[in-house]
Nucleic acid binder design. Structure first.
Lengths: 116, 116
DNA sequence: TGTCGTACTACATCTGTCGTAGTAAATATA
DNA sequence: TATATTTACTACGACAGATGTAGTACGACA
């Protein structure tokens, strides 16, 4: 129903993006559509959040960028995940299980409406 | 093993504190010890994070503070959850299930070591 | 007497998200 | 053919929450 904010997911945006880049190299617009689709419209990442994540991750060495103009002439900046990025993704997956368990100790499931 | 950072839990610190305040009114030091114990030392909230959360939540009307000097003479600032705080907690619980589902669509469980 | 545990407060900095705005090419529609 | 919409970004400032560092002060224990 309600769509969640980037702020709630903060710290996992990079992970989400890296997950998609593990399938194949991609670019901003495509990634944002995939996040929207996969999350059933529940999470729509802001453009600025997405592009700043790319910049940050390239700086950290988790992704590499390259340009392509093969298609139609419209230039895009593609990103490819690096080995370091894969390691980081893996770490985040491990951390997620711990984080989830911790948070759930403080969530009363009887107070929330399951499903939607 | 590794203990998680507040940043990952960002947006859920208030929820965690409110959960504990639903049991009974409490104060900073006590809350921080409870978080540490309940999370099996996996999450140790920073003092500054905790106290700024109190200030923010009091401003938002989720908690009310009161002083007590009954015990030993050592003064403490206690916090009590308000009805508004209970509503907020409930909302956050509902949001959590959505957030969790969304994030898990981007987590490869085969890449993470279960248990620890 | 000094250290440790308790119980905070103040303040400056950092990081990631958000809002607003603007550019520009490609494609759809009228 | 003209215009609107979609695609694909970039720039920049604001903001909120977390962090680091530091300092205060009282009580208990050795």
């Amino acid at each position: 129903m309600s769509n969640i904010s980037s702020d709630v997911i903060r710290g996992y945006n990079d992970t989400i993006i890296l997950y998609l880049l593990m399938e194949e190299p991609s670019y901003g617009y495509e990634i944002s559509k995939q996040i929207k689709n996969i999350s059933d419209e529940k999470y729509i990442i802001k453009e600025t959040t997405l592009y700043s994540a790319f910049t940050r991750m390239e700086k950290n060495g988790y992704v590499e960028s390259f340009s392509s103009e093969e298609n139609g002439g419209k230039r895009r900046t593609y990103y490819r995940i690096t080995d370091s990025g894969k390691d980081y993704y893996k770490e985040k997956c491990e951390e997620w299980h711990i984080t989830k368990e911790v948070i759930e100790k403080f969530i009363r499931s009887d107070m929330s409406v399951k499903g939607e």
